[in-house]
Structures are given as structure tokens and as C-alpha cells.
Nucleic acid binder design. Structure first.
Lengths: 213, 213
DNA sequence: CTTTTTATAGACCAGTGAGTCTATACAATC
DNA sequence: GATTGTATAGACTCACTGGTCTATAAAAAG
């Protein structure tokens, strides 16, 4: 169907525009009009595809997550050991392309709306759920179940916290500080583990190959 | 000055109303009108005291933080050792009264605006700065400076992350899970430290006396 | 080649929200 | 007691925003 193709193309285009607008103008500054302007089309057209603003932002949330999800997958399929899978999740979350104040701004703007919009809530729950699941599959092979749960939560909470700080003020936390913090956490949780460090090194390398600069 | 007294009273009242509105309606749902209604006065009156909405929300941010700051102080002045000071910061941040989804919602809503409003940014920077300072004074006596810096950051980032999760969805993270996570972090960072555990126990006790329930 | 569907835009509408203007009650000051 | 300043509210304005209605061009279908 040609219709469906164009549909997908446009929704992706406009979701992206919405995400970018969000990151530059904040939630209160994001209007359908501005998103349309950024995409170079009329407001009517954007509404034609999404029906209403809420759904547009919903798709923006999905859009923002899709990139990250791809990055995680790309590392995950190249992982051979549990430790490598853990570091795939970590590294992907602080990839140079994604872990930027701009993107963190947009993410923050959407997060703030989550409590008031069940639809966003479902999406975010799914996102967290997937991260937890990715971590658990790996960690269960490295620790007892209960500890694995705790640790998985600690890792993902720390990731969220670092993203939050990244979005908060420009000069705040960058990739290096973030990774250093994650390493402080990991080294404290699992001290003296050559396997862990080897995995970290390998994933780091893979990531810098996949995504140079 | 009687004038100043009333002024203080009203600004406090309205800041509180704004904070509460924020927590129930989110940022997009918070209008000057609604805040006024909640305070039982006219919109004009609220505007009379704050001039504009931005300054109202700015005061709401300060208001929300003031409570927390008092809680930290109350524990801090009763602390005798560095470890107790560290746990004062931690416990205060997860006090039963403050660490609630409602308050976390309001806090999230304001955070999302920080990147777009220099004034909020300054306030938030000051808040983070004070937390860092509180932690550093204590941690410097427990580790070398560089490690103290790292650890202080780790603790405050984890606190932020847990607040974020608390605000995200109702059934998410509660005080118990949060404190358990903090303890996982602390135990990993400083294993086998009876002094630390004693301090934790003492602050926990003081806190439950000051703030029963 | 006509008919129907899809894509796109322009004009418009209704609602809302921030902020102002005007007015009144009230307190303080002289 | 007159005057000045403060607190408060009601009516109003102006800008803007989400969303709809109408129209047209383009494409698909027949």
C-alpha cells in the first residue's frame, strides 16, 4: 500500500519534529503549530495524521525511545556473556549520540506529563520493563535472584538519575562523568571481577566501532 | 512592618497552593486561576503578590524545597559524627512526609521547566549545591577528597533517581524500597563498617521520633 | 476519463489563560 | 477626620492554541 508507506514516513517525520521541538521549547512551549512549522507543513496536516496533540506527543515519546532501543539491541546481539549484556544496557544508555542535554530535555518534558496521562504511563512502564528484563536476564546468571532484582533496580535508577542531571543544566553531567559514576556503582557492587572488566572493555570497544566519534 | 507580615503570610499560602496544584494537575494543568481557587482568593490577588505566573511557580519551587531543607537541618543539628551527617541527608530525603508520589509529581513538573527558565535553574543549582556541600563536609572526613566527590555525586544522583521513579507511577517506588536501594548503595560503597551502621540506626531512630507515623 | 480517496492548506471557531484596568473596602498615617 | 497606601475582586482584553470546516490538488481506482 502506498498509502501506508507515506503514512509511516509522515508520522515518523512529525514525531521527530515533535521530539525536537520538545527538546528546544519544553512542554509548555511545544504547540502543534510549531511542530508543523519545524516539519515544514501546515498544522492541519500534522493533525490529519495524529488526530490530536496528545497522540502526537505520545508518538514523540515512542520515537525518542526507538533510537535508544535500537542502540541497546545492536550491542546486545553482539554480546556473548552476561556481563557483556549488562554493559550493553549501560553503554547504550550513555551513547554519545543520545546522552545529550537536548535529548535529555525532551525526555524530561515528557516524563513530567506521565503521571497525568495513562497512555504515556503505559509506554514508560513498558520502557522500564524492558530495561529491567534485559538486565535481569543477565544478572540472574551472576547472582541470586533477589540480589539480581535489587541490582537491576539500582542500575536503572542510577541511569535515570544521571539522565535527569544531564537534562537539568547544560554544563552538568556529560558522558564521561556518567560512565564514571556507573563504574563506581558497578565496581562497588561487584568488586574484583576481571570478567566484568573484560566485558566492559569489549562492549566499550564495540560501541566505539559502531558509533565512532 | 505589618505589611511585610501579611505579605509573607500570603506568599507562603499561595506558594503552597501552587505546589499542591502542580502535584495534582501537572504543569500544563496548573493555571493561576486554579491556584487562586485552591487558596480561596481571586486570581487578581495572586497576581498582585507575584506579578506573574513564572514567579509564582518559582516560589512554589522554593516552597517545596524549604520543607525538605528544614528536615535535613533538623537531623543535621542532632548529628555528632560524619556518618550521622551522611545519613541525615539520606533519611531526610526519604522522610515519610515528603517522599510521596504527590510531592514527587510536583517536583517533576517543575524540574521539566528548569532547562527553559534561568531563574528556576539558579534555584535548582543552589539546591543541588547545598546537598553536595552537606555530603562533602561529612564524606571528606571519611575518604580522600576525590573519592568523597565521586561518592557524594553518586548518593545525590541516586536520590534524584529514586524521586523520579517515585513520581512516575503511583505503585512504583515507596519509602521502603528507596531506603533499601540507598542501603544497597552505601553498603557497596562502604562495606563492613559498623560505625556507618550505627549512625544509620541512630539517625533512623531520631527521624522516627521527630516524625512519627 | 470519471469517481473516489488521500494529502495538504487556509480560514475560521471556541475556549482559555495570563495579565490589566477599574473599583471598593480596609488599614495606617498624619 | 482626611489622605494615603494596601488588599482584594470583577470585568475585560489580547494573544494564542487546539481543533474543525471547507477547499483544492493529487493520486488511486474503476
Amino acid at each position: 500500500m502506498k498509502r501506508n508507506k507515506l503514512w509511516r514516513l509522515r508520522t515518523e517525520e512529525y514525531s521527530k519534529a515533535a521530539f525536537e521541538t520538545l527538546s528546544e521549547e519544553g512542554l509548555s512551549g511545544t504547540t502543534v503549530e510549531k511542530v508543523a512549522k519545524r516539519a515544514g507543513v501546515s498544522k492541519t496536516n500534522v493533525l490529519h495524521y495524529f488526530g490530536n496533540k496528545a497522540r502526537l506527543l505520545e508518538m514523540a515519546l515512542r520515537y525518542g525511545n526507538a533510537d535508544l532501543a535500537r542502540e541497546v539491541s545492536a550491542l546486545l546481539i553482539r554480546s556473548n556473556t552476561p556481563w557483556e549484556r549488562v554493559y550493553s544496557v549501560i553503554e547504550a544508555n550513555f551513547s554519545r549520540q543520545f546522552f545529550t542535554p537536548k535529548i535529555a530535555h525532551a525526555w524530561l518534558s515528557l516524563l513530567a506529563e506521565i503521571p497525568y496521562n495513562p497512555s504515556y504511563q503505559r509506554i514508560q512502564t513498558a520502557i522500564h520493563q524492558r530495561m529491567r528484563s534485559n538486565l535481569m536476564h543477565a544478572l540472574e546468571q551472576l547472582a541470586e535472584r533477589e540480589r539480581a532484582e535489587e541490582v537491576a533496580l539500582a542500575i536503572s535508577v542510577m541511569i535515570d538519575g544521571l539522565w535527569l542531571r544531564c537534562g537539568l543544566h547544560e554544563g552538568g553531567i556529560g558522558r564521561d562523568t556518567a560512565l564514571q559514576q556507573m563504574e563506581l556503582l558497578m565496581e562497588s557492587l561487584f568488586p574484583n571481577s576481571p570478567e566484568r572488566l573484560a566485558a566492559k572493555a569489549r562492549i566499550d570497544e564495540i560501541q566505539s566501532i559502531l558509533n565512532p566519534g
